[in-house]
Nucleic acid binder design. Structure first.
Length: 878
RNA sequence: GGGCACUUAGCUCAGUUGGUUCAGAGCACUUGGUUUACACCCAAGGGGUCGGGGGUUCGAAUCCCUCAGUGCCCACCA
């Protein structure tokens, strides 16, 4: 390629399409077990109906960086993609779609409904995976899984049957969280408590055969139809005489007993609690304790049933208002006060949940949870990053309750329970209906397949995703297969802390239960993406930028860089579009550095060979020094720091110091060319995990026949010993050059005008080592002994570390110069004072470690030298 | 109500076991710059009592106490 053909700008749109296709065609992301060490990540499967948002972009970019780096480091890198059927969320969408067509799920029935759902899934299900390709994700797409796939379903069903046979799954009739909109139960984790301003209603209940009334306070007057008792505290003298009497429930005129129980707090409200066991967790417990009747007054859609009398069929919130009015009109309402309380809502539909009595399936957690606690908190087999989440993890597992795994939905894994009778009292659990029949016939030989009816409910979505790291390798149904033995346990899991319980903890539990081994070694928990005002990005708020549009505008690499620059594990990140611009600027910078080098012609002449060699030696050392830092950052999952270190290496060290330095050396021989290009390649390889498209494009432009066909399978730079002193000395040179530029600017001396500088007779080490490149970079004619400064001349001085430098200036403002020196002098004297104070403090000298005292002594020495030097200059000025 | 974090430059954040001239980075900002890599740029520069107060120590951004503010998680108070 000749100079003219190089585009002045990187065309990201073209490159992204071209190179992604190239990677796929060459199967670079494909993984099969071999003799190499595996490095495996399973994707947190996004909802099949999902579209890419900033959260996906964040955690999938992180995964891609980790997997690309591992691949380049020679691991057999395997990133398994897939999607989750998201039972309730997807079902809700399909229901809405049907509604628009004037259909309802009840009207069309289970089978037809599932047909629609599958249709929907096929139509939209691939969207999010296609979007992941746009951001560069290097997944092994041949492995794409869906939690409702046949093999995945088989795993779920087998697990259910096994757990049932272990006695860990049971059916129970109890109070559960009920979502009246989706008409299904929810697990405790799916209930989000939200603060709400409401009213506390004080309602008078007449006492039977007495003129007295007893007043209870409730936020839910519509549930009085379900009242079965009134409860007071045993220590409450106000009501003691009423215990054992009957109260009459207003409106429905039912008589209920007055009982006492420790649970009631006499301080709260009126000190009297109405007991509605079918609609409140605590009332339920009291109901069980005293064997009270459970009156369920609500339908499954939270309208009142026949117990609600004339309110029958009306919604609970409508009734709340109306009944308050009716109570008031009949003088039952003593008081209505404003009150703030927390109300449980459904995570998926947002609907206020009800506590509802129903038959559900539960998984016993008590024993299952034990290895999960031990492995993370005691044995440290699994690291949570950052570690602060260990507390949350511990708390949840310590207080875990049995997991309600059944859902009254259709979209999901249908529970493999087969009832033998109409009353659903007898049942068998089996993987297939045929097996179920065999089992059933052992109970009753006369049964036929038509007598069996399968449980209507499906399983909680998380009951399939908790198997994900195992089931994607078919490790449940086929526990000894090559894949599971090779890839499991996986290495890193990257996800948000919001699903630590839903998913991460349960995967750990299932890992030990079904594989007797952890599912992964490290869990990197990202923060939430917020906007620049600190608000959580969400569809509802409309503050989430369209990721695809961002990619279109800035390029995938730029958005990746922008996002990664501001992410540290566990902390939320405030996303601002200007970060993408920063990413784009970086892309542009790299592209242009390529254009510069490409433009250099090879020459026989070798001007300034020493300067070139110094720069080459330095950059090599600097590169490996930085690489060591970056590797450490990766070890600690400090991806943002790793990127920033690379960013500064490329922009400041490579472009501003190295290339600028080389540029000034004039003609470049072939050896220099070779070295510059080899550095450039190393830079690209270092950057590839962060910026896959740009680096591939450049790799293709510069690679030679010995290089790998794609950068993504080339080697990541390997740590190498480097000369620390060399790196440090050059930092000194940078400092010196910066100060020279500053003083030139101040004195109006052009940067290119060659000048002499004066310093001590013994040149500072840094200068000695980099003399030629320094003189070239700083436009220095000669470095002279300060004794040689002409007597009558004007000059300015400055310090680098403890070394003093002078340059001659045409017409120095002596007064100004003196003032500058004076200022510096007084600072140094003050500093000296504090150092000497320390050193004369006996307690410091005797208590502080020797090393620290030495350092102070050195400081003292250096400062004294500096002061002497400045005082001398001041004398010369006068 | 309980628990866990956090508060450092205009913004977003680093700051390892208290100790090098330790108060840092990136962005933003100010000033100057169009000699062919890049104005998506170059060069230089300004900017912070480390949330307030108290304590421990020879020495505190770092450890302890306290106050204030912010965020998250958990919890059945009608």
């Amino acid at each position: 390629m000749t100079k003219k053909e190089i585009a002045s700008k990187f065309n990201h749109t073209e490159a992204e399409e071209k190179w992604y296709k190239f990677w796929i065609e060459n199967n670079y992301f494909k993984s099969t077990p071999d003799s190499r060490e595996p490095y495996t990540i399973v994707i947190p499967p996004p909802n099949v109906t999902g579209v890419l948002h900033m959260g996906h972009m964040l955690n999938n970019t992180l995964q891609d960086i980790l997997i690309r780096r591992a691949r380049m480091k020679g691991y057999n890198a395997c990133w398994v993609p897939g999607t989750d059927h998201a039972s309730i969320a997807t079902e809700a969408k399909v229901v809405n779609m049907l509604k628009e067509k004037g259909l309802s799920k009840e009207a069309i029935g289970r089978e037809k409904f599932l047909e629609h759902a599958w249709e929907w899934t096929e139509k939209y299900g691939g969207t999010i995976l296609e979007q992941l390709k746009k951001i560069g994700c290097s997944c092994d797409w041949d492995r794409t899984k869906f939690t409702l796939d046949e093999s995945m379903t088989a795993s779920v069903i087998k697990v259910f049957v096994d757990l049932f046979e272990d006695g860990l799954i049971y059916k129970d009739f109890r109070l559960v969280n009920w979502d009246p909109k989706a008409k299904t139960t929810l697990s405790d984790e799916e209930v989000i408590y939200k603060e709400q301003s409401s009213f506390l209603y004080h309602i008078n209940y007449p006492i039977k055969d007495s003129g007295e009334t007893i007043t209870v306070a409730t936020t839910r007057p519509e549930t009085i139809f379900g009242d079965v008792a009134i409860c007071i505290s045993p220590n409450d003298d106000r009501y003691k005489h009423l215990v054992g009497k009957k109260a009459v429930v207003p409106i429905c005129n039912r008589e209920i007993p007055i009982i006492e129980d420790e649970y009631v707090d006499p301080e709260f409200g009126t000190g009297c609690l109405k007991i509605t066991p079918a609609h409140d967790e605590n009332d339920y417990k009291i109901g069980l304790k005293y064997n009270l009747e459970m009156l369920d007054v609500l339908n499954e859609d939270a309208t009142l049933n026949e117990y609600g009398l004339h309110y029958k069929g009306k919604d609970r919130f409508v009734v709340r208002k109306e009944i308050a009015k009716e109570l008031e009109e009949n003088n039952f309402l003593a008081k209505k006060e404003k009150y703030t309380n927390k109300v449980g809502t459904s995570e998926r539909t947002g609907e206020v949940i009800e506590s509802r009595l129903s038959h559900q399936w539960f998984l016993k957690m008590e024993d299952l949870v034990k290895p999960a606690i031990k492995s993370v908190l005691e044995d440290k087999e699994i690291a949570l990053i950052p570690t602060k989440f260990e507390n949350t993890y511990r708390h949840w597992l310590d207080n875990i309750r049995d997991w309600n795994i059944s859902r009254q939905l259709w979209w999901g894994h249908r529970i493999p329970v087969y009832y033998l009778d109409k009353n659903k009292e007898k049942y068998v659990v089996a993987e297939t209906k045929e097996e179920a029949l065999e089992k059933a016939q052992k109970i009753n030989a006369s049964l036929t397949i038509n007598d069996l009816t399968q449980e209507e409910d499906v399983l909680d979505t998380w009951f399939s995703s908790w198997l994900w790291p195992i089931s994607v390798f078919d490790g449940i149904s086929n526990p000894e297969n090559e894949e599971i033995n090779y890839y499991y346990p996986t290495q890193d899991l990257v996800t948000g802390p919001d699903i630590l319980f839903f998913w991460v903890a349960r995967m750990i539990i299932s890992g030990y239960k079904f594989r007797t081994e952890k599912p992964f070694s490290n869990v990197y928990l990202t923060g939430l993406v917020r906007d620049n005002e600190g608000k959580k990005m969400s569809k509802q708020l409309g503050n989430s930028p369209d990721v695809l549009k961002l990619i279109d505008t800035y390029g995938a690499d730029s958005v990746r860089v922008g996002l990664m620059l501001s992410t540290n594990a566990g902390n939320d990140l405030l996303f601002d579009e200007s970060l993408c611009q920063q990413g784009k600027n970086f892309v542009h910078k790299i592209w242009n550095s390529f254009r510069l080098i490409k433009g250099w012609e090879v020459s026989d002449k070798n001007e300034h060979p020493k300067a070139k060699q110094q720069l080459v030696n330095w950059y090599e050392n600097k590169f490996y020094a930085t690489l060591e830092k970056i590797e450490k950052d990766f070890e600690n999952y400090r991806i943002s720091d790793a990127l920033m270190n690379a960013y500064k290496l490329i922009w400041d060290d490579f472009c501003s110091w190295f290339l600028e330095g080389i540029k000034r050396t004039g003609e470049k021989d072939s050896e220099t060319h070779k070295q510059v290009w080899s550095f450039f390649k190393l830079n690209l390889q270092l950057l590839h995990p962060f910026m896959p498209f740009l680096t591939e494009e450049l790799w293709q432009l510069i690679k030679d026949k010995n290089d790998d066909n794609s950068i993504c399978i080339s080697s990541f730079p390997k740590n190498k010993n480097f000369d620390k002193k060399e790196v440090k000395d050059f930092e000194y040179i940078k400092d010196l050059i910066t100060k020279l530029r500053s003083i030139r600017k101040e004195k109006n001396i052009s940067f290119t005008e060659k000048i002499d500088i004066y310093t001590g007779s013994k040149k500072p080490k840094g200068v000695a080592n980099f003399q030629e490149s320094f003189m070239l970079s700083a436009s220095i004619e000669d470095i002279k002994d300060k004794e040689e400064i002409p007597e009558e001349s004007n000059h300015s001085s400055f310090l680098v570390g403890t070394d003093e430098y002078f340059i001659l200036t045409a017409n120095v403002d002596a007064a100004q110069e003196r003032e500058k020196l004076q200022e510096e002098l007084s600072y140094l004297k003050g500093f000296l004072l504090s150092v000497e104070k320390k050193l004369s403090n006996e307690r410091f000298v005797s208590n502080a470690p020797e090393k620290v005292v030495e350092i102070e002594k050195k400081k003292q020495q250096d400062t004294l030298e500096k002061i002497a030097s400045i005082e001398k200059s001041l004398k010369m000025l006068s």
